[in-house]
């Protein structure tokens, strides 16, 4: 944790996460004895600058979603620090860094105006019993900002901005297609004019053609409203398309974080290299050397010793089995957690 505390030199930060941990207890028996922990998020450190998009990738079950939900305390994190530059909490209106995990209930509710969330499943994330108007108005109602007339205008504008029509207002979610529902979710996220939007796999439930539309919409909205995104995904090409920087997660830890082009061209972590080798190339003549990893993803309830990736890493040495690597800034703005990062010559795309 301590080794990333020098993040202070990174300028223009909006979100700065240090050593975030979320352990889910495993309970057994009548008395709910705790027999162990699932380390869903185990020491995650990352940061998002104002106006940029950080893509968070990793395979299923690596803790991406848990990490994003822990950041706004939908899950109460076990440990760590989530610094967020908040406007609503500072008395003079000047944005100021606050640790979200130290806020009380009331303050946390206030901060939620500035951090919105877009969910993965467009069917499940909209209440089937509410009309579109009620759904988009809900954040306003919760924060006591709903005014008859004026708010209705805001809602219609939002709806039109995301590509729906005003006459959709009285309809129910089940009357829309998947892409349209996700647009409703986006409109809801923007209702309170947030500064940071946590996108939890917002396009992975959509058709490929709809994915592209939705991604472009998100990019347009980012420019228009000066938004910052933490964009969780498992699709590397989606992440490459939308992200300024990318963080790669493996079994609850961030393995590598760097600018998108840098990461795709010069990966420093063997896991990133393996992931990149699995990205399909649009060139049929290109013969890629596919890295087939041995073994399975580690079980977060019983992670391996040392570096969690060592049982599957083809570059692993003895040191990797005993000693967990630190997450360090090897090149400017290029962070990696690997003992051999300096000596390895890894292949990007």
């Amino acid at each position: 944790m301590a080794e990333v505390a020098q993040n202070g030199k990174v300028d223009n930060l909006l979100l700065d996460v240090h050593g975030l941990k979320k352990y889910f207890p495993i309970q057994k028996g009548l008395l709910r004895r705790v027999v162990g922990y699932v380390k869903a998020v185990d020491d995650v450190s990352l940061y998002v600058r104002e106006g940029e998009t950080l893509g968070l990738v990793g395979e299923s079950g690596c803790g991406k979603t848990t990490a994003s939900r822990s950041i706004i305390r939908l899950y109460e994190p076990t440990a760590g620090q989530v610094l967020f530059k908040s406007r609503v909490l500072s008395p003079d209106g000047q944005p100021r860094m606050v640790n979200l995990l130290e806020l009380n209930r009331e303050q946390m509710t206030k901060v939620r105006q500035e951090i919105a969330m877009i969910f993965q499943d467009p069917i499940n994330s909209l209440n089937p019993r509410m009309t579109v108007a009620d759904i988009i108005a809900e954040p306003l109602v919760i924060h006591g900002k709903y005014q008859k007339g004026r708010s209705e205008e805001i809602i219609v504008n939002l709806l039109e901005r995301v590509g729906l029509r005003a006459d959709h207002l009285r309809r129910y979610p089940h009357e829309f297609s998947g892409g349209q529902r996700q647009r409703i979710g986006i409109a809801r996220a923007l209702a309170l004019n947030p500064r940071l939007v946590l996108c939890d796999e917002p396009v992975s439930a959509l058709d490929v053609s709809i994915q592209a539309q939705t991604l472009n919409l998100l990019q347009d909205l980012q420019k228009e409203f000066n938004l910052s995104y933490l964009f969780v995904a498992h699709d590397l090409s989606v992440v490459q398309h939308i992200s300024d920087r990318v963080a790669v997660m493996y079994v609850g830890k961030v393995a590598e974080m760097a600018g998108a082009e840098e990461l795709y061209a010069n990966p420093l972590h063997p896991y990133t290299e393996a992931l990149l080798s699995a990205v399909p190339k649009p060139d049929p003549l290109y013969k890629s050397e596919r890295i087939i990893m041995q073994g399975d993803v580690a079980d977060p309830a019983h992670p391996p010793s040392g570096c969690y990736f060592h049982p599957r890493c083809r570059y692993a040495v003895d040191r990797c089995k005993t000693e967990a690597p630190a997450f360090r800034e090897l090149k400017p703005d290029h962070w990696v957690a690997c003992h051999r990062a300096e000596e390895l010559q890894l292949k990007g795309i």
Partner: peptide, 26 residues
């Protein structure tokens, strides 16, 4: 566990609102 309950929570809805506005109608 439905995401719309989580969504309401993420926007700062109080427990009472989540329970009786979102969950109970279901």
């Amino acid at each position: 566990e439905r995401e719309y309950a989580l969504a309401a929570k993420s926007f700062g809805a109080k427990d009472r609102r989540i329970m009786f506005r979102h969950l109970m109608p279901g």
